[in-house]
Amino acid sequence: MSTAISVGKPSWWRSEFFLVGVLLLEIAIFSRTGSNFATAINALEIVRLSAEIGLLAVWMTPVVLTGGIDLSVGSLLGLCAVCFGKLWRDAGLPWPVAAAATLVLGALGGGLNAMLITRLRLPPLIVTLGSLSLFRGLAEAITRGVDNFTGFPSGFLDWGQGYLVGGIPAQAPVWIAVAAGVIVLVHYTVFGRALRAIGHSPEGARYAGIAVNRCVAWVYVLSGTAAGLAALVYVARVGQAKADAGTGYELLAITAVVLGGTSIFGGTGSVWGTLLGVASLAVLRNGLQLSDQPGELAGILTGVLLLGALSAEVGFKKFSARRRASVTLASSNSPS
């Protein structure tokens, strides 16, 4: 009877059905239109291309599950990429050390968000909007807007450009391991359950003895670390680090998450859905390219897909809310 009830039961499987359908449709169409689309090599190429957005999106899922959002990941990716270049080239650190420092930097960036959100109780949208500007600005300041780091050692570049046995791209294991880790964390651990509780009702979670601030802080720190990791994967793949690296990636990551059926209001959603979201976006982009269609079409269709998925979800929720309202009355009318 009140608004709270209209918030849905976990309906992620619906979104996933929708996405599987979209994915199959894409594959069916592009297999006909695209040259060399339906090949194992291309499938692996899609995995390679989706790694950075995928890493960001997969970690964005727990953030959105808590009812938050992290707009700063794309900028943080840029900042981490630039810092990595700076540490390796100008500070002369060996690349593995610089890489480790980059991950720490990502964690610190996430930590800044976490601190402002949990300590000062500021809305994540505003905090990460501010840190989006801040991180990108720092990246520009460090490079004075022009510096471009190139010429990384091949030992490092192999991680982004090389292949393992069977033509598997070198970044695939990292990407899959992280995705698997997040799936386990979100779906099979107590931490994941706590995140959902927080997303549905932060106050309710606090009253149930969940350390809300600590959980939320971790989520943003991990999201920042993921941005650091994505920065490394990105630099290794493209072979250069500029201040504008990862511009707009935050929006792609959020698109994948929302497309995957995670409610932007928190509480419900799944990492599997996000993976499907990432996959359908990557396949779309790749398939259009191989079909000689303009790349812009991918962007347009992404927007359309996003609106379609959302409308479908809202429609389904309205339907099930109506059904549930009647169930509510039935159960409360029956003698107990």
């Binding site: 709270a4 009830i5 918030v7 849905g8 039961k9 359950r193 959902r196 509780a197 549905h200 009702s201 106050e203 309710g204 979670a205 606090r206 009253y207 149930a208 003895g209 969940i210 509480g267 419900t268």
Partner: peptide, 15 residues
Amino acid sequence: HGVILEMPVAHNVSL
């Protein structure tokens, strides 16, 4: 504060 309305009974009691 008492229950989380959007979560199932089982998840509520185990929280």
